[in-house]
């Protein structure tokens, strides 16, 4: 584990230094990343220009969902976003070059092309979240206050697990990056809106199949003092860390199985 973190830091550091050699380009890319993700929020703002409530949620409440989901995805994308290149590496054989170096393949694949410009998404989501926290009309209990950082970290871990499971899947199906993207970026698109506007079956799928609901919906419903549209027991609102741990465990197993399969078949 220490070796993996060290290798990750080494490689990511080299990429940051090389990015900083072209500072202007870096600033432009980050601003671009910021603006591209800000468009999502612009869409939400436009909806609220026509209606006061969306699925019963006010603009600050929706912004809270948007900010938490965006920050969680942003963190996972910053750390593990390069994993979706794994299929390409399997196809063109460059995965082999990672296997001949004295560092865990996972850390090398995750840190490759580490892109600091992804801070643009995090910054944009964080600004929306800060505004939402200020504008929300809720009574903050200490538990609620604690729940915010917990849901951000758990959410990032769940998104991260999806990145890794998607990457592991690419050991077998090398062009499956889009499937993973539909769960990560697609999952972000889903969870930035109130759950009340979606069909029940979709919500069930997003709770029990791919645990997107634990990224922000369930803890946020608790903070906002709203009933669960599925009528699930209230204690589930606090289960995000547990779900995150399980998801990461599954992701670890999937990665191991994928790498093992690669090392026995070589393709």
């Amino acid at each position: 584990m220490a070796e993996a973190l060290r290798a990750y830091a080494l490689i990511a550091g080299a990429w940051i230094r090389s990015t900083m050699a072209y500072r202007f380009s870096f600033v432009m890319m980050t601003v671009g990343n910021f603006l591209a993700t800000a468009l999502n929020f612009a869409a939400i703002a436009i909806i609220f220009g026509h209606t006061r409530l969306l699925g019963g949620f006010s603009l600050p409440e929706t912004a809270f969902l948007y900010g938490t989901s965006g920050c969680a995805l942003g963190l996972a994308d910053l750390v593990l976003g390069s994993m979706d290149q794994l299929g390409r590496r399997v196809r063109d054989g460059t995965l082999d070059t990672l296997l001949v170096r004295p560092a865990p393949v996972f850390a090398q694949a995750a840190a490759d092309r580490f892109a600091l410009r992804r801070l643009g998404r995090i910054t944009q989501s964080a600004l929306v979240l800060i505004w939402a926290l200020a504008a929300l009309k809720v009574v903050w209990t200490p538990a609620d206050v604690l729940l915010v950082p917990v849901m951000l970290l758990s959410g990032a871990a769940i998104f991260g697990a999806i990145f890794v499971i998607g990457a592991a899947f690419q050991f077998w199906a090398t062009d499956a990056a889009e499937v993973q993207n539909s769960f990560t970026y697609g999952g972000n698109g889903l969870t930035q809106y109130p759950p009340t506007i979606f069909a029940k079956d979709l919500l069930r799928g997003a709770t029990f199949v791919v645990p997107l609901a634990f990224i922000n919906w369930l803890p946020a419903l608790h903070i906002l003092g709203r009933p669960d549209p599925l009528g699930l027991p209230g204690w589930l609102d606090f289960c995000s860390p547990l779900v995150a741990v399980v998801a990461c465990g599954v992701a670890g197993l999937a990665w191991r199985a994928g790498l093992k399969s690669y090392r026995s078949t070589g393709s």
Binding site: A14, T94, R101
Partner: peptide, 9 residues
């Protein structure tokens, strides 16, 4: 056929 170096560095 393929480099073990970091392509963009």
């Amino acid at each position: 056929q393929r480099t073990t170096l970091w392509w963009d560095l």
